[in-house]
Lab assay of single mutants.
Amino acid sequence: FSITQFVRNLGLEHLMDIFEREQITLRVLVEMGHKELKEIGINAYGHREKLIKGVERLI
């Protein structure tokens, strides 16, 4: 299971460039909250919320 699959499953594949540029893996994403996601350029609250909720389902 990769970050690419995870992001695609959430319908947020347009954010993949950010994850690749910042070298974010699923392991790193698990540790990130709204503040960190915003810092790397994910400005939409809804997108950040989707990512965080998606990660919570993985754990």
Rank of each mutant, 00 (worst) to 15 (best):
E31N: 14
N9P: 02
S2P: 11
R27P: 14
I3M: 12
G41N: 03
V55E: 00
K50W: 07
H14E: 13
F6Y: 04
I40V: 08
A44F: 11
R21Q: 07
Q23A: 11
H14I: 12
F1L: 13
Q5L: 10
E39I: 07
H47E: 15
L37R: 02
H47L: 08
N9C: 15
F19Y: 01
E36P: 03
Y45A: 15
G54M: 06
R8H: 14
L51S: 00
K50Y: 04
I18Q: 03
K35R: 10
D17F: 13
H14P: 07
K50F: 06
H34A: 04
L10S: 02
E39F: 07
G33M: 04
L10F: 02
F19N: 00
E22K: 14
Y45E: 12
E49K: 11
E20W: 07
E49R: 10
I24D: 03
K35F: 07
G11F: 04
E36R: 06
E13D: 10
L12T: 02
N9H: 12
V55S: 09
Q5S: 11
Q5N: 11
I3D: 02
Y45R: 14
I52V: 05
E20K: 11
K53G: 05
T4D: 12
I52E: 01
I3L: 15
H14R: 07
K50M: 12
I18T: 06
A44W: 12
L51W: 03
I59W: 09
L26M: 12
T25R: 04
H47G: 03
G33Q: 05
E22S: 11
K38W: 07
T4E: 15
R8D: 05
V7S: 02
I59A: 08
V28S: 10
V7R: 02
H47V: 15
V28T: 13
Q5P: 03
G41W: 05
A44V: 10
F1H: 10
H34F: 04
G11K: 07
A44G: 12
L29P: 00
S2F: 09
L12V: 03
T4C: 14
T4Q: 14
K38M: 14
E39S: 11
L58F: 12
L29C: 03
T4F: 13
E20F: 09
R21Y: 06
T4P: 07
L10N: 03
F19S: 02
G54I: 04
F6N: 00
K53L: 10
E49D: 09
I42G: 02
G54A: 13
Q23H: 14
G11W: 01
T4R: 14
V30P: 04
I42T: 01
K53S: 08
F19P: 01
R57K: 13
I52T: 02
H47P: 10
L29Q: 01
L26A: 03
Y45F: 14
L12P: 01
I18D: 02
I24E: 02
G46Y: 15
T4N: 09
V28M: 15
I24P: 02
Q5Y: 08
E20I: 15
H47S: 12
R8N: 08
Y45S: 09
I18R: 04
D17H: 15
Y45L: 11
L10T: 02
R8C: 10
N43R: 09
K38I: 14
A44C: 15
I3E: 01
D17G: 12
L58V: 06
E49Y: 08
V28H: 15
N43Y: 13
I3C: 04
R21M: 06
G46A: 15
E20P: 03
V55Q: 02
N43V: 13
G11T: 03
Y45P: 12
G46L: 14
R27W: 10
